[in-house]
């Protein structure tokens, strides 16, 4: 028996999006009314990082289900319906969380160039409040899976009768997954998502290469400040890949939850999330003007950035070869 399985990891991670996001939201609301730009920035950074952390939180949830209910058969004291409810609530919360994370990132990106447009402040506040609500719902549904004390408090009637054989609920997440997997007759959805995943990859690398090869000294005529304008395009590529990647995951979670290459890919994505903040929050790369030689540390970070993205590509590529996908 492993000392730490993925269900443990889900329990460790799953408090982060709720509590971490709550802290971020509290900071942000105070900053919003006190009109304090430093606090706002801190709130945006927390939102962005929590959104990145939400990716492993969501996927370890599917892994936890497999630990609780091997072969999709749950023991008597665990309700499949409760798991489905939690999964669906978590999917919506995750979706909103990623949208909030994107607008927070966009806010940080804008702030570096000029004072942030007020529409973005309001959008992030609104999204943040909605996300927090959805996250709390998902957390509550999740708690009911293994905490009878919560269940007892929330249900006034006698314990629900177990669903009759063959009436197991499917849930929204599973329905979407089945469609992506081609089980509902839309056979082109998975291949189309694959094509988009590769296009997103090229968009990401377009920006990663242009920025980091410049810092390493390749096209010195470019200033960092001018290259910085390209960042949202790379982020767009990442969003395409997160969306299509999650489609694959929901369609066939079993291919990924126990796939070590997938775990490594996720760890590298977390690293990439922290890494991008270097270019946005630290002044060092900003001092690289046209024809300047970048300082050693900036070069080191640029090399690490290329390494991280090649790592993500490598682990994704090796999913079927070293891991068990397909």
């Amino acid at each position: 028996m492993e000392t730490l399985n993925l269900a443990h990891l889900h329990l460790l991670l799953n408090h982060l999006p709720t509590i971490g996001f709550g802290v971020g939201l509290a900071l942000y609301i105070v900053a919003f009314f006190a009109k304090n730009d430093h606090l706002k920035k801190a709130g945006l950074v927390i939102f962005f990082l929590v959104a990145v952390m939400a990716i492993p939180t969501y996927v370890t949830g599917s892994a936890a289900e497999r630990v609780l209910c091997p072969e999709l058969k749950c023991p008597a004291d665990i309700s499949v319906d409760t798991i489905r409810n939690h999964e669906d609530a978590a999917l919506f919360a995750f979706l909103l969380m990623e949208i909030t994370g994107f607008f927070s990132w966009l806010g940080l990106w804008q702030m570096r160039r000029s004072p942030l447009a007020s529409w973005n402040w309001n959008v992030v506040l609104l999204l943040g409040v909605i996300t927090f609500g959805l996250m709390a719902l998902a957390a509550n549904e999740g708690g009911e899976i293994r905490h009878p004390e919560i269940r007892a408090a929330s249900t006034t009637t006698a314990p629900a009768e177990p669903a009759a054989e063959g009436e197991a609920s499917v849930g929204i997440a599973r329905s979407i997954g089945a469609a992506v997997a081609g089980n509902t007759g839309i056979g082109w959805l998975w291949p189309a998502a694959e094509a988009v995943h590769f296009v997103g990859l090229c968009m990401l690398f377009a920006v990663v290469l242009a920025v980091d090869l410049r810092i390493l000294g390749m096209a010195k005529g470019l200033s960092f400040q001018s290259l910085y304008q390209l960042l949202p395009f790379g982020m767009l590529g990442f969003i395409l890949n997160l969306t299509t990647g999650m489609m694959f995951f929901i369609a066939a979670p079993g291919q990924y939850t126990n796939n070590v290459e997938f775990h490594r890919k996720l760890i590298f994505i977390l690293l990439a999330g922290v890494n991008v903040l270097y270019f946005m929050l630290i002044d060092e790369p900003w001092e690289i003007g046209p024809d300047d030689n970048a300082p050693f540390r900036a070069k080191a970070v640029a090399a690490i950035t290329i390494f991280i993205w090649l790592g993500i590509l490598y682990y994704g590529h090796m999913l079927p070869f070293l891991g068990n996908a397909f």
């Binding site: 290469l209 090869l213 390749m218 005529g221 470019l222 001018s226 290259l227 304008q229 046209p290």
Partner: peptide, 11 residues
């Protein structure tokens, strides 16, 4: 738009 294109030839 403020990104110079000429240095891109190095890529």
């Amino acid at each position: 738009p403020s990104l110079k294109l000429a240095p891109f030839e190095r890529y």
